[in-house]
Design a binder for these strands. Structure first.
Lengths: 272, 272
DNA sequence: CAGTGTCTTGCGCGAAACGCGCACACCGTG
DNA sequence: CACGGTGTGCGCGTTTCGCGCAAGACACTG
């Protein structure tokens, strides 16, 4: 013992040390008792006590000989990773998040693509986010620096989003710098296609409350008309899609005066 | 050994057993070596070998005395299972959920204990649940038979709950058969203790909107006054706590005319 | 300034869980 | 029938864990 190494010797209070343990564990994914004891120059007993409390607080999970982060990585959930068109959605989400400046107030729709935007926004702080999506709430629930307003309403189990009178009533009390909308389908002439009129009505209302309107739809959704309820969008609006989109699919939007952005999986905008 | 119990004896190949272990671990969140050994009627050594391989394959994470799922299953989050006073909260939640009849409309507060109630209510269908808690939303998001209303509002990152004008405005449009409230502390004379006046104001409002008011607080919270904001409760109300509560801690509540229910970890009410 | 209470740490001990090697049982193949 | 591969149970030494105890640090109080 009595290590005097020039390494990462720390002299900290117990609170600070525990916070640091959580940070190390979440970035590394896994941390051993021995390593932690050496790093902080305390006994393994002390580390075990720390881990016991952190486990009790639900911040870490105990393993044999150490501890691991509860979530694989703050980055992305497995559910997202395995979903369809993951790379495309991720790229779209990155570009969308890049449009947002710290200090702004944005409105996020429900849906997996918009949920990914919320993930990317975790580091754009300070920020105010209002949302109708449960996925968005989960993505930002642990980020203290982001002010989150939930609009409430009736939960649609399929889309994990809120709709209904409560949602609309809440919307009427707010306006936004930008709104990011998802869609089941999108066309140049009719706008956004959804399963029901309650959803389209809500999306129209959302679009009217923001200065900039973005519709996030990966290539497969362009020109698709899976249902017969439509939300018309106030001009101007911006369509964000991925580079799998055919020029022929983009042409109608350009002709209609819609701003079209095509991004690669890294979130960089490409020239059509 | 050679148990011949009528329980969950399984006779399986090693592959099938490992698949089953993964299934159990992901639904339960956590599985112990001893339990698994008993379930499959093999020795702990065999289970340990299974876990070693599954861990190597990246399908599970090893813990001391068992294994856990890598991704949190929608069912129960590990965070709940490992949290403080888990057994007590689970028992309280079971009893609380038993009070609810199919077809009723209930209001659920934020907090881990009330979140556990939501989990128990997954099978009490049909049902209408309104809530101010993100945990509750997550617990019921995938249950189609439960109608979920989110009250919305400003997200408190610490408690994972919603507060503020939006929440209160939504509350004024609904009433409920029962409301289940959590608490940071609870006393017989002053009621519920919380960190801020916005929370106590909301809890008072919630209590006034329901016919039956339940306060769920495990033994450690009784008589505790960690903060200085208080929510007074309209008589009559019911205090639900666990069997670790001292009779001396319960006496003030009984004297004040509060209905007191003491439950064991299985959710059975005990006689004080 | 001494007394008291709280919080934290290090240490020692017994209990629990671990990995490893060995022996045996089962099964398909040459 | 001999053979190797696989899976299982068991025993043993090792590692890790959790708990109780005592000592030090610090704040508060009379």
């Amino acid at each position: 013992m009595h290590i005097d190494d020039a390494g990462t010797a720390r002299q900290l209070g117990s609170r600070a040390r525990r916070e640091e343990i959580v940070r190390l564990a979440t970035t590394t994914g896994l941390a051993s008792v021995e390593e932690l004891a050496a790093t902080f120059e305390v006994t393994a007993s002390t580390i075990r006590r720390d881990l016991a409390q952190l486990t009790g607080d639900g911040r870490l999970a105990r393993t044999y000989g150490g501890a691991m982060a509860l979530v694989a990585h703050p980055e992305t959930s497995l559910r997202q990773r395995t979903g369809e068109a993951y790379a495309a959605k991720r790229g779209i989400a990155r570009w969308a998040a890049d449009q947002v400046q710290p200090g702004e107030t944005v409105l996020l729709d429900a849906g997996s693509t918009v949920g990914a935007v919320a993930h990317e926004l975790r580091t754009t702080v300070p920020l105010t986010v209002a949302t109708t999506g449960l996925t968005v709430l989960e993505a930002l629930a642990d980020v203290d620096e982001v002010h989150v307003e939930c609009l409430g309403g009736t939960l649609r189990h399929l889309s994990q989003g809120f709709v209904g009178p409560l949602t609309e009533a809440a919307l009427e009390r707010m306006t936004f710098d930008r709104v990011f909308l998802g869609a089941d389908g999108v066309t140049a002439d009719s706008g956004i296609c959804e399963a029901g009129l309650d959803q389209t009505r809500l999306k129209e209302l959302m679009a009217r409350r923001a200065q900039h309107v973005y519709v996030l739809a990966h290539a497969a959704k362009l020109g698709r008309r899976p249902f017969h309820a439509w939300a018309r969008l106030p001009e101007p609006w911006t369509l964000v899609t991925d580079d799998a989109a055919e020029p022929a699919a983009l042409a109608p939007f350009l002709a209609a005066g819609v701003a079209v952005v095509v991004v690669d999986p890294q979130g960089r905008a490409e020239q059509p």
